[in-house]
Amino acid sequence: MKIVLIMQKLIMTMLGVAFIGVSLLASVGQASAQPEWMPNPPKAIGGQCDLDPKEMRVKHMTLLDHKRDQTMHDGIRTKKYSLKNCIACHAVKDESNKYVTVKDERHFCRSCHDYAAVRIDCFDCHASRPQDTMNKAAKAAGNPHAKSAGISAIGKPGDRTVATLRKFIAGEVK
């Protein structure tokens, strides 16, 4: 019985040491490399969205959901809150000048969802990049933000706090 207890303690201690070690290593790594941990959603092709970014950050899922039911069941196909339209405007291009799919971590939705660790269900079914009609519109406008997308980070290293994230969501940090 005693041996079991000792073993238990030993294992717990080892686990604890390992945990602290990993955390230390992680923080060192963070400090030395350029961090990319803050969500940095790429700018939309069509410029600033006329929807309020603050509201969209907080409520986009509900708004899209509501619109989804209207479109699906009532055939209401206005552009506001239409996923297809959001995707068209928030498309990101890769090095070969093609729109990235949600498989690419530079994808607009992933830039935040990866950070928040929230799984997106939309793209099991929906196209995650623009096609046909929207392609033309996007082509005409070009995509000036593709290069910077997902690469530069906002915030200083080390301030990975809930407060910063809140500020970001509230629109105080752009």
Binding site: G75, R77, K84, I87, T101, D124, C125, H126, A127, P130, Q131, D132, M134
Partner: peptide, 26 residues
């Protein structure tokens, strides 16, 4: 992958002819 943007379809769900509802609505 690479579904049409007007015809979402995905694993684990059932699908059928939509009478091209996206065209009909237009």
């Amino acid at each position: 992958e690479d579904q049409k943007e007007h015809a979402p379809r995905g694993i684990g769900t059932v699908e059928s002819c939509t009478m091209c509802v996206h065209l009909v609505d237009e």
